[in-house]
Design a protein around this nucleic acid. Structure first.
Length: 266
DNA sequence: AATGGGACCTGCGCGC
DNA sequence: TGCGCGCAGGTCCCAT
């Protein structure tokens, strides 16, 4: 589900709602989402601890706890954190010291909850490439030049650059007017620059608007994010391009739906 | 090294 | 109304 802007939005929402609160009790309604340690230890590790700090790495949320351990959450496709919760869709419920509940919902059960002594040791986190905000244009250009893969799947490769998902990859390529199947190293200097700026602008603006609510994503309050109204190509197959009126295309690339305008994006 | 396919799951919307 | 199919924002694993 959520990409960098959505996870950042949830992080900020959590800072306003659950930061500093104590977890009184944890109820695991569906054990599949608890990946580490076992359910029993997971509940024990979380009971009676306070949420001290909330971090985000790419699409991963990290709640640092007073015990020194961390609750690491990957929402994957359909994960949600909702407060105040208590809903019937909850997979895991966190009962907090304010008498309210933080729900972890996840229709498809791809989500992953872990309690770790040190979140930095998680293999997935160690494998992450830099976030777009953490590199310079010169670095981005150099990174891209070394790759021969199609540019769109490359943007989705979290070990290359982290935080971008299917939706924002499509939007950034449209803004940069670059076709999704272009070999990465074929991009001109100007195109790399436009793409880099497009990625950062779009991610920033999406954060300002609380993310894109398509399908399942909601903010911690349960309300929708507001960025979907700015989408130019994502989910618009068959509809006219806002720039040239050509029908937006959808192709499959690396198994993912890929939306683009074949006239505007070369 | 890179790419493609399938897997993990559930539920929605569509066409027939 | 009901059924089957394709689709879904993420990531991993295997085969080629």
């Amino acid at each position: 589900m959520p990409e960098l802007p959505e996870v950042e939005t949830i992080k900020r929402d959590l800072e306003k709602t659950v930061l500093g609160k104590k977890i009184i009790e944890v109820c695991v309604h569906h054990p599949a989402v608890v990946r580490e340690p076992g359910v029993g230890k997971f509940k024990k590790d979380l009971t009676g601890v306070t949420v001290k700090r909330i971090l985000r790495r790419a699409k991963v949320l990290i709640l640092e706890l007073s015990s020194g351990k961390s609750l690491v959450i990957h929402l994957k496709m359909t994960g949600q954190l909702v407060y105040p919760g208590g809903g019937s869709k909850s997979r895991v419920s966190f009962y907090l010291s304010d008498g309210k509940i933080l729900d972890f919902n996840d229709q498809r059960l791809f989500g992953e909850l872990r309690v770790l002594g040190d979140w930095r040791t998680l293999k997935f986190i160690q494998s992450l490439g830099p976030e777009p905000f953490d590199i310079t244009l010169a670095q981005f250009k150099e990174m891209i030049s070394k790759k021969r893969t199609k540019i769109k799947p490359l943007l989705l490769d979290q070990t290359f650059v982290s935080g971008i998902g299917n939706l924002y990859a499509a939007e950034a390529l449209f803004r940069a007017k670059v076709g999704p199947e272009r070999p990465s190293q074929s991009l001109s200097g100007k195109e790399k620059e436009k793409l880099f700026n497009a990625i950062k602008d779009i991610l920033e603006k999406a954060i300002r608007h609380g993310g894109s609510s398509v399908d399942d994503y909601v903010r911690v309050s349960g309300k929708a994010g507001d960025y979907a109204r700015f989408h130019k190509v994502y989910g618009r197959a068959g509809k006219p391009c806002f720039l040239c009126k050509t029908q937006v295309k959808r192709i499959a690339l690396g198994g993912r739906g890929t939306y683009f305008c074949s006239k505007c994006q070369k």
